[in-house]
Design a protein around this nucleic acid. Sequence first.
DNA 1: AATCGTAAGCGTATGCCGTACGCCTACGAG
DNA 2: CTCGTAGGCGTACGGCATACGCTTACGATT
Lengths: 205, 205
Amino acid sequence: MPRPRSLTQGQIAAAALTVIDRDGLAALSMRTVAAELGMSTMALYRYVGDRGELEGLVVELVLDGVDTSVPPGASWQERITVLAGRVRDRVGAHPEAVPLTMTHRHRSAGLLRWSEAVLEVLTEAGVQGPERVLALRALLSYLIGAIQLEHLGPLSGEGTAAIAALPRAEFPRMAETAGHALLLGADEEFHGGLAIVLRGIAART
Amino acid sequence: MPRPRSLTQGQIAAAALTVIDRDGLAALSMRTVAAELGMSTMALYRYVGDRGELEGLVVELVLDGVDTSVPPGASWQERITVLAGRVRDRVGAHPEAVPLTMTHRHRSAGLLRWSEAVLEVLTEAGVQGPERVLALRALLSYLIGAIQLEHLGPLSGEGTAAIAALPRAEFPRMAETAGHALLLGADEEFHGGLAIVLRGIAART
DNA sequence: AATCGTAAGCGTATGCCGTACGCCTACGAG
DNA sequence: CTCGTAGGCGTACGGCATACGCTTACGATT
């Protein structure tokens, strides 16, 4: 009976993400989002309780877009690799939002569905009980850490160059390692690390 | 010749960490830190360029306290486990500072020394070249991700309980897995996941 | 067609925040 | 004893999240 809502939470999240992608995470504020929507600042509070909730909506928008259907693939390793890659790609499409995505990740139903899919594949692979819990948590930990290393490192590739220039006397192996790292692309690094985790799961005691 | 400094950066970092530990991360501000030191707000700017630099100092204080000497141990796996545990313990001692620690981790010389130590052990274990880069990055990714999962999850143990209460129809395996997870302590989870990564490194192709 | 309760939308104001800028002052070298 | 230097501080500004109360658009009811 009363005046109908003119916006959905999804539209608000989309506006916020537009601001973040265009002007950076620091530019995100209730004011900038309201301006993006052509509304007054306080009108936003009819849709979200506070700024944190708005951030949560942005993360939902990002993570719920992940395809969580179990992909075809010869091996369970390949299937998990595809699942992990989908999250990485989706998050990587909004690099400015990465810190938000990490902080509010637990608000996303998409990530729950993703975990469910991974568990399904692990079960297929014969991983059971507490072992399966550990495998899931290890995969999730690696995924979160690797995404952050990729996007919040000391400015990506520039950082490895800085490390390569470290005092050899104090950091002999770091310098050498950074030299090798320069030859590795971000994709190789991500998938190489993931392969290590998958081998560790396969080689269960 | 001029007036000597009355504070060190270390003292400022300590004051900031005190505020964080006592009143939470949200309470951290130039004003609260200055008050903690008994100085005026603006006096702080003689020591740090801006708030970001202050946060960096806090992280240095936390991470540079990690013992990065290569520990004794029967196997390289055990040595790396000890090294990783030291970081986890040190970070875990200041849970309110965890988000800061993750964001500014690259400012810490301590983490560089830690990486150097890990590389030393890996080299001893016969891991070489690009393979060693991948192993280090995988360990670091896991470490970062696991620490965050532990401290920024949906309120730790409470979260797993919430997951266990999920609609069984939609998340059959998550519900079951969360049941198993309740039996696992944080330590078992961390070390179990780390063991997976270490097995993956050991089982190199 | 007229009415009216309800919730949408907005304006104003408060109290934080980081920090630019300029003044005053304690210090130690000469 | 003097004086240049740098430490320390007071004030002020613009931007932030948000509490609160007014105004207005709507559609169900009469």
